[in-house]
Design a protein around this nucleic acid. Structure first.
Length: 573
RNA sequence: GGCCCGUUAGCUCAACUGGAUAGAGCAUCCGCCUUCUAAGCGGAAGGUUUCAGGUUCAAGUCCUGAACGGGCUACCA
């Protein structure tokens, strides 16, 4: 149990003993300022209001019932009724020596839907968010002992594929090889779009091919498969470069639900949820009605008989609940899909595809904007390819690493540059609040100074360097910790908060909290490093061992935290 | 038109879900490498949290309205 959880429990009990009706919340938070101690409990003020008593008197009554002997040094009532708690140094030191079980007491089956690119085009920088935020959550939940099922809901079944198949047929007809023609997917898409817009005959063929493909025509199916294979291979390559845990076995594309769409529709009709409207089959949702009371429509079958993504998302939802047995389903998808996701969730529940206890969560995120604050486009009007961003990042890192550390071999530099460059990109994205729109800026994203992943990696290498010099294995090292310098205490206190942060993120799915935490931890380590010599002359052996222990714990926490973000560490940089 | 989201330092972002004097990084300025990696450390400066009301012991955070920006809004995904 984390220190925070323990304090929370004790204070809640004390509040109850002081006459606060349950449930009573201590409202425990980290103190904002050093003079206010380590934690502050803000619950007395709200409770006093409820009881119509004086908040400071109530706070005193709570303190009278609160026993933190051996845990806290100082308990103070301040301001209108804050309870400030200063932890005991020996308690903190002793806590550092105990192993905390990071595994959840209630392991669940959790489906994590992320990345889910459209296979018609190459991945661009806009795909970064879903891919790395989702991956981070998958790693964290796995670390906590949940059964995580990654699902990459790739878009392989849309209208555009008719156009792409027709284009591919054209190329193959001229004797070209498929993988050569598809070497540049972006270019291929543009060519095909050009044909579609300029040539009515081509356009008709493209439209016909969509229908043929979806009804199982072998010729179209073969062409489609060729295209998909190339596109999937491209995506898997990107995942590998990004150190993202998505593999071929996690791909559950739209097309895989095709055979179930008729069943979904039949179920919706049978339950009276889907009705005829303007020739289409539509589900009307009063739950999402506007202020005039007009319900929100969701088309589940087009007037021509074709299906849309609402239907395949419903089939997908039913599969995840019924077959995959999910307790919780997390969707990491663009905020523009918010209405669609609400419609799917509500319909899924009304149709009994989803039991009430299953948690459906759309964790949306904002749109990538350009430097002008408008939705991001390159000067040519296109997007930046993800592959190009990764190449640029590694190149910049390579240049810097070889400048900073010329003694390293070419091979070492290449490995370090990859970890630094990719880490910087991921961290730049992960460290921002998920839900807001955000500005894409090359230099900010590829910065290696300040609050960036190289800063964290650098802290790690500094610790490695100490252990290398001492000729001690960091992982195996254990020694009692004593906290005398303020930097030592600050570092120890930060180390103890790791679990609290992870629990929070596992719940609200905001991995930027992990970034903030790791930056604060690394920052506390840097101050400690400057102020508290470890191996230098004049440091007695107890102090040296205690500091080595703090170093070892800092290294393992930073490495573990970065691993949860999918960022790698290295011994030297 | 309706609905959803956003607006915090010159720039990019935080603020533990209503708590105390709103914090970081970048950029700027001043210090610190003969001693564990200076991708670092210490310090300075920078704010009417878009605006106007309201609720509250307490509002960047909640409610109402306005301005600006983005998105969604029936046969793309």
């Amino acid at each position: 149990m984390s220190i925070k959880a323990r304090l929370n429990q004790r204070i809640a009990d004390a509040m109850q003993a002081a006459g606060v009706p349950s449930p009573c919340s201590p409202m425990l938070a980290l103190s904002g300022k050093p003079q206010f101690g380590d934690y502050q409990a803000n619950g007395a003020m709200g409770a006093a209001k409820q009881l119509k008593t004086n908040p400071r008197e109530l706070a005193q009554k709570i303190l009278d019932n609160l026993d933190l002997e051996g845990i806290a040094d100082k308990l103070e009532i301040a301001g209108p009724g804050f309870i400030n708690i200063t932890l005991n140094n020996d308690f903190l030191a002793q806590q550092l020596g105990t192993d905390i079980d990071h595994r959840s007491a209630d392991p669940q089956t959790i489906v994590v839907d992320y990345s889910s690119p459209n296979l018609a085009k190459e991945m661009h920088v806009g795909h970064l968010r879903s891919t790395i935020i989702g991956d981070s959550l998958a790693r964290l939940l796995e670390y906590q002992g949940h059964k995580v099922i990654r699902q990459n809901h790739m878009g392989d079944w849309g209208t555009q594929f008719g156009m792409l198949i027709a284009e591919l047929e054209l190329h193959l007809g001229e004797g070209e090889q498929a993988d050569l023609a598809l070497n540049d997917l972006e270019k291929f898409y543009q060519q095909s779009k050009k044909h579609f817009d300029a040539d009515p005959e081509f356009a008709d063929k493209a439209r016909a091919y969509v229908v043929k493909l979806q009804s199982g025509d072998q010729h179209c199916r073969n062409l489609w498969q060729k295209f998909i294979d190339v596109s999937v291979a491209h995506n898997l390559e990107i995942y590998q470069q990004l150190n993202v845990g998505l593999r071929a076995e996690h791909i559950a594309p739209e097309s895989s639900y095709n055979d179930d769409l008729d069943n979904v529709l039949a179920a919706l009709i049978e339950q009276g949820l889907a009705v005829d409207s303007e020739g289409a089959k539509v589900v009307f949702l009063e739950e999402l009605a506007d202020k005039n009371g007009d319900p929100s429509p969701m088309i589940v079958q087009k007037s021509g008989g074709g299906f849309l993504y609402a239907t395949s998302d419903l089939a997908c939802l039913r599969h995840r609940v019924g077959t995959l047995q999910a307790d919780r389903i997390l969707y990491f998808i663009d905020a523009r899909q918010s209405l669609h996701m609400k419609q799917v969730f509500i319909t899924g529940r009304k149709a009994n595809f989803v039991q009430p206890e299953v948690s459906l969560e759309h964790h949306a995120f904002g749109t990538m904007m350009g430097p002008d604050g408008k939705p991001f486009k390159t000067r040519a009007g296109g997007t930046v390819k993800l592959a190009d961003l990764l190449v640029e990042a590694v190149e910049r890192a390579e240049k810097l690493v070889s400048e900073k550390n010329p003694d390293l071999s070419i091979e070492e530099i290449a490995v370090i540059a990859r970890k630094v460059g990719i880490g910087a990109i991921k961290y730049a994205d992960l460290s921002k609040t998920r839900t807001n729109d955000y500005i894409f800026d090359w230099d900010a994203m590829l910065s290696f100074e300040g609050n960036t992943s190289p800063y964290l990696q650098y802290a790690y290498t500094r610790i490695c360097s100490i252990f290398r010099k001492a000729q001690i294995e960091a992982e195996a090292f254990t020694a009692p910790v004593k906290l005398t310098e303020p930097q030592e205490k600050a570092l120890a206190f930060k180390l103890m908060q790791f679990e609290e942060v992870l629990n929070q993120v596992a719940q609200d799915c905001y991995p930027h909290s992990i970034c903030t935490y790791l930056y604060e931890l690394a920052s506390a380590f840097m101050s400690f490093y400057e102020q508290c010599p470890v191996l230098k002359d004049g440091v007695d052996s107890d102090t040296q061992n205690s500091r080595l222990q703090l170093c070892a714990l800092s290294a393992s926490t930073i490495a573990q935290g970065l691993d949860l973000l999918g960022i790698e560490v290295m011994e030297q940089m």
